[in-house]
């Protein structure tokens, strides 16, 4: 599904990713963990095509297609989805209007027929039930005045609607209380499928109590320094990230 090889990326003159390798197979959930500043969000942004990052080496392919040469919307058309750590508020842009435009843009790009208003409403109502989202959110401007939890649920709602092949969840747990976290995790779990892969970027282990990963990777100083099963997350929870410094110092 996703294949990253030797990826190096800069912000300005500063290299953040120092040759990163990662393979994610179809239907797998991979957790990317690591301390602040390790490059987790940079990885998510580089993959989704945000401005401000320069890829200097390496490759990232989604089902064999070079992602790095594409515009952000073309990546979305291929099936990439980023759930933002800080979803942007769009005053004046109606949520339903936005969601319909996004879904139809992706369907159009894939050569599928567009949804009309009635079919779209039916689909939305079905997806809403899964996420326990209040229907009133759809009538409001996108994320505008939403609580932290509502914003994150709106992200997962979009994921459910757009049905990506690879979803990147960037610190989806940040700013959520335990009830909101559970609802968001339920939503994510409802989206699990053998055809859908996920990259769950998180600082804390607690999200992984609810979204069980197949693999856990530890990212530090722009490289994956350790990979393992879900027990690795528990180890991190116990030991913290302090030991990484020792590991990387020894490696250096």
């Amino acid at each position: 599904m996703l294949s990253i090889k030797g990826l190096r990326a800069n912000v300005g003159d500063k290299e953040i990713l120092h040759g990163l390798d990662l393979e994610i197979g179809a239907g797998e959930i991979h957790a990317i963990m690591g301390p602040n500043g390790s490059g987790k969000s940079t990885l998510a942004h580089v993959l989704s095509g945000r401005d401000g990052y320069t890829v200097t080496a390496g490759s990232a392919e989604l089902n064999g297609v070079n992602l790095l040469a594409l515009e952000p919307e073309q990546r979305a058309h291929l099936g990439l989805f980023l759930a933002f750590q800080y979803p942007v508020e769009l005053p004046g842009v109606n949520n339903t209007y936005f969601l319909k435009a996004a879904l139809n843009a992706i369907r159009r790009a894939r050569g599928e027929s567009e949804y009309d208003a009635v079919a779209f409403m039916r689909l939305m109502k079905e997806k809403l039930r899964v996420l326990h989202l209040d229907e009133s959110l759809l009538k409001r401007p996108v994320n505008f005045g939403f609580s932290g939890g509502e914003k994150k649920r709106n992200e997962i709602f979009q994921m459910a609607l757009l049905e990506p092949k690879l979803a990147i969840l960037d610190e989806t747990d940040s700013g959520l209380d335990i009830d909101a976290l559970r609802i968001v995790a339920d939503g994510v779990n409802a989206c699990r499928s053998p055809e859908r892969s996920m990259m769950v970027v998180t600082h804390y282990q607690r999200l992984l109590d609810y979204i069980q990963p197949d693999y856990v990777h530890v990212l530090a100083h722009g490289q994956i320094i350790r990979s393992g099963g879900k027990e690795l997350a528990l180890e991190l929870e116990e030991r913290g990230y302090g030991w990484i410094e020792q590991v990387t110092e020894v490696a250096a």
Partner: peptide, 26 residues
């Protein structure tokens, strides 16, 4: 950031610009 958000959801830059401009005027 708003433009990128919309593009990341599959809208072209031109569509994103339209949507945000209309949002501004809403």
């Amino acid at each position: 950031d708003m433009l990128f958000y919309l593009q990341s959801r599959g809208l072209t830059r031109s569509q994103a610009r339209q949507m945000l401009s209309l949002g501004f005027a809403a």
